[in-house]
């Protein structure tokens, strides 16, 4: 194709306008496409690792008192220092992750199950929909923390009761979301076709409705998990949550509060762990939302 021998020169080779996509491995490609899921997942995974292996990460007994060594600054011996009773803050923070993660995941799970159940019923049984949703509105009109405090006041302080109280405060949001999704799904032609094919209502809910609510539900569950961790820490901080003998981030901060101007590290370390964990869970939720259904961004 020498242009000189022809009257009409052949078109010159086009420059590569589009850069050739780089070859990426499957994992690298996933990280590139969903950086938030990767970072969030990595941090959540790290926190889970810390919670599970807390006894093997150079920790001491988090409840062992040592008044002689109280309020030590962070050092090689006490990485995060010691509190006013001489307990090792590093050990307490690591063990405290167990409470936060347990409360976060349990509340996300319980609130999702309960909220989905109520949302499905409200969405499908139109007669009770108005009543159920007004009750949900009523529950949602109370700030979750106040509702949890009120519920905790009725019972004994324990991690289990904290989980129940926060779940009750959080599930109306799930039920509202699920009901909305159900209302739009039940008008879908494939649901009408299933009715025309003689499918019974429970099977329609199980096979056609529920699987299609999972994506928004998972996203909502991660946000509830993050919000539950903050509520738990708040409850513990004001003394209405996890009993003081159990080290939780809220408890550690509550105890360090009196000294925070002179010994800020007692509050600082649990606070930074709480922030990172909540951020990680929220990043994961954001990433999942973008990956599963971008339109959800507007709905939540």
């Amino acid at each position: 194709m020498s242009a000189t021998t022809h009257r009409y020169a052949a078109a010159p080779d086009l420059p590569a306008i589009l850069p050739v996509p780089k070859e990426r491995g499957r994992i690298a490609g996933f990280i590139y496409r969903h950086p938030t899921i990767f970072v969030g997942g990595l941090l959540v995974g790290l926190m889970i690792f810390i919670a599970i292996f807390a006894p093997y990460l150079g920790t001491k007994d988090p409840t062992a008192l040592a008044p002689a060594r109280r309020t030590r600054e962070p050092s090689e011996l006490y990485w995060f220092g010691t509190d006013m009773l001489g307990r090792d803050v590093y050990s307490r923070v690591l063990y405290g992750s167990r409470v936060s993660l347990m409360v976060g995941f349990s509340v996300a799970f319980c609130a999702s199950i309960l909220g989905t159940f109520i949302g499905l019923i409200a969405g499908f049984v139109r007669q009770i929909d108005a009543v159920v949703m007004r009750v949900m509105d009523g529950l949602m009109s109370i700030p979750p923390i106040l509702l949890a405090i009120a519920l905790m006041a009725l019972t004994r302080a324990s991690v289990q009761n904290v989980i129940i109280a926060i779940s009750i405060a959080e599930f109306p949001r799930v039920s509202r979301l699920v009901r909305g999704v159900v209302l739009s799904l039940r008008e879908q032609p494939y649901v009408e076709a299933a009715i025309a094919s003689g499918t019974k209502v429970p099977v329609i809910i199980w096979k056609h409705i529920l699987p299609n609510t999972l994506a928004p539900l998972m996203v909502q569950a991660t946000f509830i998990c993050a919000s539950a961790m903050i509520t738990e820490a708040t409850l513990s901080f004001i003394g209405a949550g996890t009993p003081p003998i159990i080290p939780s981030w809220g408890n550690i901060m509550a105890e360090g509060r009196a000294l925070w101007q002179v010994k800020p590290y007692i509050v600082f370390f649990p606070a930074i762990f709480l922030s990172i964990t909540v951020l990680a869970v929220n990043l994961l939720g954001d990433g999942l939302r973008d990956a599963l259904d971008p339109r959800l961004a507007k709905r939540l």
């Binding site: 879908q188 032609p189 494939y190 009408e192 076709a193 299933a194 025309a196 094919s197 003689g198 499918t199 019974k200 096979k207 056609h208 699987p211 299609n212």
Partner: peptide, 29 residues
């Protein structure tokens, strides 16, 4: 009496395989 809908995208459950979509009426009846 059966039905075919307008929108070929929303009339099939996106989470079911063709086998399961076609099996549904067969099993129901």
């Amino acid at each position: 009496v059966q039905v075919v809908f307008q929108d070929p995208f929303s009339s099939l459950n996106p989470r079911m395989k063709v086998r399961d979509i076609l099996a549904e009426p067969l099993i129901n009846f």
